[in-house]
């Protein structure tokens, strides 16, 4: 299991990244579990991270606490997706 099964959370998360960061759809579609996010995407500064997390809360109907946000969460697409899947499963 790569955690990248073609599920709804994956599709929604890619759409959020596309919308928040203004990335092209084909670029976001090419993300895999190891694709770097924070530090790797120049579009993703702290303001954009805040927008990304708020949009995730909104579209996934979850609440993300300050202490859940660390460097690891935003290190790769795989980490962010696994987090979103776990939060949705718990919601």
């Amino acid at each position: 299991m790569t955690g990248l099964a073609n599920d709804e959370t994956d599709t929604l998360l890619r759409a959020i990244l596309r919308d928040v960061l203004g990335l092209a759809a084909d670029r976001v579609a090419a993300f895999d579990a190891d694709t770097g996010l924070f530090g790797a995407l120049p579009e993703l500064d702290s303001m954009a991270v805040a927008g990304l997390l708020t949009e995730m809360e909104d579209r996934f109907d979850i609440v993300i606490d300050d202490d859940e946000v660390d460097g690891e969460l935003l290190e790769t697409y795989g980490n962010l997706l696994a987090f979103a899947q776990a939060k949705r499963a718990a919601a």
């Binding site: 702290s46 303001m47 991270v49 805040a50 927008g51 997390l53 708020t54 909104d58 300050d66 946000v69």
Partner: peptide
């Protein structure tokens, strides 16, 4: 509250950086 939350979050994130 959503507007505020997002700005607070941006501030805590940049402070952490």
């Amino acid at each position: 509250a959503t507007v505020l939350r997002q700005m607070l979050r941006a501030r805590t994130l940049s402070a952490r950086e």
